[in-house]
């Protein structure tokens, strides 16, 4: 009786064949069917942003997306950021350097938001960063250090790019 959909989902460069009820959100499929629990769920109505992932490079809410909708898309989650040896990437390093996280629950969402945003806009002003950071909710930091971390990461990427 339950309606099951067969889909192929591309996550972090790996392809997964899944048989799922269509009502399963992308957030639940990533977390509970694929075991990628770095993506968190904080409100299930698209406002807190803890579930933010990249869909074809663009930050998007995994709680407002059914997994069946994104067959054929490239999904990226927080698990894709670190190197193969587990070393943090520059954005993650900037978050720890600037104390851009406390409890860490909202953090993967902010990382993926920033990762997607900086890919599109490598030279943002601090005010532009603030406006994008306002997409997600953090209850611990007061946001100041999140903006700091993203600003410094962007600056360092530009410097590395210019010198390299």
């Amino acid at each position: 009786m339950p309606d099951i959909q067969l889909i192929e989902l591309n996550v972090n460069g790996e392809s997964h064949d899944l048989a799922i009820p269509p009502r399963r959100t992308l957030a639940d499929v990533l977390r509970h069917d694929l075991g990628l629990t770095g993506t968190h769920v904080g409100c299930e109505h698209g406002i807190c942003g803890a579930c933010t992932v990249l869909i074809d490079g663009a930050p998007a809410r995994a709680c407002l997306t059914f997994a069946v909708q994104v067959e054929g898309a490239e999904i990226r989650t927080v698990e894709s950021l670190a190197g193969p040896d587990g070393a943090m990437n520059d954005l993650q390093q900037a978050f720890t350097d600037h104390h851009g996280l406390q409890c860490g629950f909202c953090t993967p969402g902010f990382l993926m938001l920033a990762e997607g945003y900086l890919a599109e806009e490598p030279e943002p002003t601090r005010e532009e960063i603030r406006e994008v950071v306002a997409s997600n909710i953090c209850r611990c930091t007061g946001y100041h250090t999140i903006v700091d971390a993203i600003e410094h990461c962007a600056r360092k990427r530009r410097a590395d790019c210019a010198s390299g």
Binding site: L36, G38, E79, A82, G86, F95, T96, L101, G104, P108
Partner: peptide
């Protein structure tokens, strides 16, 4: 706490 929380391994 940071490395695990930042890499999705919390």
């Amino acid at each position: 706490e940071d490395p695990r929380l930042l890499t999705g391994r919390g």
